[in-house]
Amino acid sequence: MTTLVTDEKRPTEPTQLASRRRVLDSLPSGARTTGDQAAARSRMVRRLRIALPILAIVLVGALLVNTQSNKADEAFLDDFKDIDATAEELSMASPRFAGVDNKGKPFEITADVARQNTNLKDVVTLDRPHAVQGENNGSTVVSADKGVYRSDQNILELEDQVTLQHEVGSEVYVFHTPTATVAIKDEVVTSDTGVEGQGSNGRELTAERMKAYNGEGRVVLEGNVHMRIYPKDAEAKPDDNAADTGRPALKEVDIEKPQ
């Protein structure tokens, strides 16, 4: 059947034609899908319809399995069964204890390392302790390689290369002794294992026992106390056998008391 197109239906205006041409041109044009391509796509879709549900089931199963059995965690915990949960010994680097004694004088104890046994809360062992008591030049400085601080008795026990710096008269002596005990509250330093002290100008002071009462600025030495002083204009350490320099030998003079 043929259709007559009359004049009235044809686009008469040129712009309408051009715009319709542009619309047609913008449409993508690709090759037509061939029969094989369509068949391949159908096959892939059929396979996916089977594989995806199976994958989902496997994932859910794995999740269930995982949450139920915790055999692996028990084994992990077994490895650590005999380890005690609380620490035997606490240690602290560069500790610093500070306080004031009975008379309000400040004291400070520092050390390289402090160790505290959790069963003995009042006992702290110190590596290279250093204690300063008092202020300015009236202070006493004590240091050693090892020390034990007993906080319940406020006592510091020092051993190995103990060094005590203390005023004797108006001069500061540095004493060395194997062991010493510092009673902090009473401000008393005691040593009964022999002390050797050096002052200025080569002065020496030795004794078997020493007690330094910091609060009173007093030092008591006992047992073979020996002090050596060099006269001001003498060299600090003239030859010790000065007696052999031709000086008259010391004559012992016996005196009978007159009747």
């Binding site: 004797v168 008269g169 007093r218 047992g223 106390v225 002090m227 060099y230 204009d233 003239p238």
Partner: peptide, 20 residues
Amino acid sequence: DSKEPIDITGDTAEFQDNLA
């Protein structure tokens, strides 16, 4: 003007301020 060192020995010695 002896330059000899002075040696003091005794059983005990107590120092306080400038008194020994």
